[in-house]
């Protein structure tokens, strides 16, 4: 299990990387944290002619709070975000999600943006970005574009990123102050990819009914899934038992017909999706902040 031959460079500035990508995008693979990419190389499931290591592009090493979102640059490590007191305080859901990625040795090296770019449908961060209606920033020699999560993930390990584009930033929107959130995944072992994972962000209205719901799943289809049908069930309710039953029932449909593998059948994944839905909804709703004047 040794990687095949390739040529390598590690530019210091973003423009250099973009020039290379512009001219040879098809033959180049980007190396950031490498925690998913290097295993593919070692197994010779990937054999790019060129590898551009972006780890030395210091201008991509940041996470910053913007008014509407947390912006994370392409080489910020998952652990740096996880450990940040600022992020712990302002985006606890993101921290909770990151803690479930692999093991600390993986997160020490793995990047937040790399996980988004890899677009593994069983991974946590793409699902979070989908859940929150987040965005990514793609840059190329010819400019930049902001892509909505729903327009970014395009099936198993693929995205709508175009040749010549580099994913330089990911933007996780802030949660409303009163929103309650929950993230639960069912994995066989600590650190494994989940068989099914679910997350919910519920925002109560003044009358303490559910004003908005963001529900997303991973490990259930070729891409992370935002479950509008489940969300619709919740809006305007106080998440009574009947509503939870209906939501849990609707959640079964998020699991794709082909989601059978060595660990789980489709039917079992549906059961998990349904049960995790109940659990995240209960927990998220319990965590909401009841607004003043609410009963």
């Amino acid at each position: 299990m040794k990687p095949p031959r390739f040529r390598y460079c590690s530019p210091r500035i973003l423009d250099e990387a973009l020039v290379l990508l512009d001219q040879y995008g098809e033959e180049i693979k980007i190396l950031a944290g490498g925690q998913s990419f290097v295993p593919l190389l070692n197994m010779r499931l990937a054999a790019p002619a060129y590898i551009v290591d972006i780890n030395h592009i210091s201008e991509l090493h940041y996470f910053e709070t913007e008014p509407d979102y947390l912006a994370i640059g392409a080489i910020a490590r998952q652990r740096q975000v996880e450990r940040s007191v600022l992020v712990q305080e302002k985006h606890p859901l993101l921290v909770e999600v990151i803690k479930h990625i692999g093991h600390m040795q993986i997160r020490n090296r793995g990047t937040v943006v790399g996980s988004i770019a890899h677009a593994d449908p069983a991974a946590e961060l793409p699902a979070l970005l989908t859940c929150l209606d987040g965005e990514v920033l793609a840059q190329s020699m010819h400019g930049e574009r902001v892509i909505k999560a729903k327009d970014f993930f395009a099936g198993y390990l693929s995205t709508t990123l175009e040749a010549g584009e580099l994913l330089t930033e990911v933007r996780f929107p802030w949660l409303a102050r009163q929103a309650g959130w929950s993230f639960i995944e069912f994995a066989r072992r600590a650190g494994d990819y989940a068989l099914v994972g679910a997350m919910a962000v519920l925002t109560p209205a003044l009358d303490d009914t559910c004003m908005s719901a963001n529900i997303a799943y991973f490990g259930v289809a070729g891409s992370p899934i935002r479950a509008r049908a489940v969300e619709q069930v919740l809006i305007g309710t106080q998440l009574d038992a009947h509503t939870l039953d209906a939501a849990a029932g609707a959640a079964r449909d998020v699991v794709g017909e082909d989601m059978q593998d060595v660990h789980a059948t489709v039917e079992y994944r549906r059961e998990l999706a349904s049960e995790l839905t109940r659990r995240v909804l209960k927990q998220a709703w319990a965590r909401r902040e009841q607004l003043e004047g609410a009963q």
């Binding site: 066989r188 072992r189 600590a190 650190g191 494994d192 990819y193 060595v262 660990h263």
Partner: peptide, 26 residues
């Protein structure tokens, strides 16, 4: 946790530590 799964072609479909699950300390 550990179960070697062969498909009908005789291929082990979980022939890696990602999918053949040795228990961890947890």
């Amino acid at each position: 946790f550990e179960r070697l799964v062969y498909d009908e072609e005789g291929q082990i479909i979980n022939a890696s530590f990602m999918d053949y699950l040795l228990p961890t300390a947890a």
